[in-house]
Design a protein around this nucleic acid. Structure first.
Lengths: 197, 197
DNA sequence: CCTATTAACATACGCCTCGTATGCCAATTG
DNA sequence: CAATTGGCATACGAGGCGTATGTTAATAGG
């Protein structure tokens, strides 16, 4: 049988990623001891180094996984919306909602950039921005968005604003109220991209 | 004489901050060995722990210093502008320009948040956002900016977009061209805040 | 079917870094 | 001038990380 072997390996990788994701997302990358979270997965650092090279490599794998999940979710939600513009706005607000998860904030917005550098340079972890860029391009073609605008650049700026919005909500005393204010301010900024009719 | 003593102490603090700032800004917080950069200042970790408690405390001090410098610069540049709105826009673009410094990006936007958490929660390091919040409030009062908007929230979102713009420019192959695109996109977003006349 | 090789891990070792406890010296204070 | 405090260095112990080295089980070739 070929399968059991392959499956065991895949399972090992998955267990390591899951354990690391949990550790990174709660206590943070720097505080997460490789000995500890590999042990919590019933393994040792030997497996980690074999599969991912080093701690950074494992972080990359975790980030790739999260990025994939986020992109899938954004894609799903945004697909049902009456207009393209609404589609785009929904995409952004969904992104903010997801960014409320402490795990995502910690890994994708704080530890990730600190350890791996500018997120824009990450390989296998740009699905969300790519999607937003595509939609902005389409909106521009349709004349909904102002023409003199680089879509990818705009998508990045919006990403920055989104993550700040999410952080503000997440750290708020009254998340409900803060959410309203943050989403409102965010949508207001987006209005700047629209061509006035 | 009281002075020499006090001066020596202040000088020690300053040397530690300067050495740490350089180390953090180049190789990064995690890679910066306390033994190394204290030695480069002619001191030991003993002085560091005495004055700043721990590595995080020193990072806070470094951040406070940089924040002060940034706020002073923003204040200076923005003070000469014909209109209040222009004043505000200049403030933002100056902020982006400053954020191009690798040292500032690394310390203020990457390592700082990873180690100390959400910048919005930082004490003694919110001068820039505070200033932008004030100006937004004034603009709102004057009817230049849309009324239904929380100034501080908006300031934070703009901050997020600014830092992304700066990162994009800094990591670009052609900074000159990217700068034009990023600043343009940024200003376009800001237009969303204006009340249409 | 048997052997050789490789791959998937675990173990063991040394280095570096950090935090704390302790010690020393100079400067202030009365 | 003595006592005390504060500024800083030294010394020690504990982890954490990376690498080098096993060990075992699965595959491949004859």
């Amino acid at each position: 049988m070929h399968r059991p072997r392959k499956e065991m390996i895949a399972e090992t990788r998955a267990k390591l990623i899951a354990a690391a994701r949990h550790a990174f997302g709660t206590i943070g990358y720097a505080e997460a001891s490789m000995d500890d979270f590999t042990a919590s997965a019933g393994l040792t650092r030997g497996a980690l180094y074999h599969h991912f090279g080093d701690k950074k490599g494992l972080l990359q794998a975790v980030i790739a996984e999260i990025d994939g999940e986020m992109a899938a979710r954004v894609d799903e939600v945004a697909s049902r919306a009456p207009t393209r513009w609404q589609h785009f706005v929904d995409e952004c607000t969904t992104y903010i909602e997801m960014a409320l998860e402490p795990e995502i904030q910690r890994i994708m917005f704080r530890d990730g950039p600190a350890v791996l550098g500018d997120p824009a340079q990450w390989q296998n972890a740009n699905a969300c921005t790519a999607s937003m860029t595509d939609h902005l391009t389409a909106l521009q073609r349709d004349g909904v968005v102002v023409p003199d605008l680089d879509p990818e650049t705009a998508a990045r700026l919006i990403n920055g604003a989104s993550s700040q919005a999410a952080q503000r909500i997440a750290n708020s005393e009254d998340p409900e109220a803060t959410s309203k204010k943050a989403i409102a301010a965010f949508k207001q900024l987006l209005e700047g991209l629209r061509k006035q009719s």
